[in-house]
Simulated scan of single mutants.
Amino acid sequence: MTAAAKDQVRLLNDLGVRPGAAGTPAVDLGRGPGLQSLALAELGYSPVRTMWPRCCATRPGASPRAADWRSATAT
């Protein structure tokens, strides 16, 4: 896990997000590089789904597949 993702774990803890019980899903609304998805997975949430709004998928350089749901896993 990157230092930036670890910072997000600390931020989520500071905001009151606590480790999820096994099988507790989470959703990242997908407006950035995915650091919150990694942090949620590190906190035990599973599955973590990321959804890019269609407005983001149509930005120059964005892949059309980026609008699909994706899973994050902690490593």
Rank of each mutant, 00 (worst) to 15 (best):
P47E: 09
V48F: 02
L43R: 04
T58Q: 13
A21Q: 15
P53A: 11
T58I: 15
L38W: 11
P33C: 03
L43M: 15
P60Q: 12
D68R: 15
W69C: 15
G16Q: 00
A74E: 03
A4C: 00
L40W: 11
P53Y: 05
T50R: 14
A21D: 15
L35R: 07
V27F: 02
D68G: 09
A21T: 11
Q36D: 06
G34E: 04
M1E: 07
Y45V: 09
S46D: 14
G32I: 02
A5K: 00
L38I: 14
D28W: 00
S63L: 12
T75M: 12
G34K: 04
A72M: 01
Q36P: 01
P53R: 14
K6G: 09
L40F: 05
E42N: 06
G61A: 10
M51C: 12
A62K: 10
R54L: 15
R49W: 10
L43D: 05
P47L: 07
D28H: 03
R65K: 12
P25D: 01
V48W: 03
A67C: 14
A21K: 09
A26K: 03
A5P: 00
T2P: 06
L12P: 01
G23F: 00
L35K: 06
P19R: 03
S37R: 04
A72N: 04
N13I: 09
V27A: 08
L35G: 06
P64L: 04
A41P: 02
R10H: 10
Q36T: 15
R59E: 13
S63Q: 08
G34L: 04
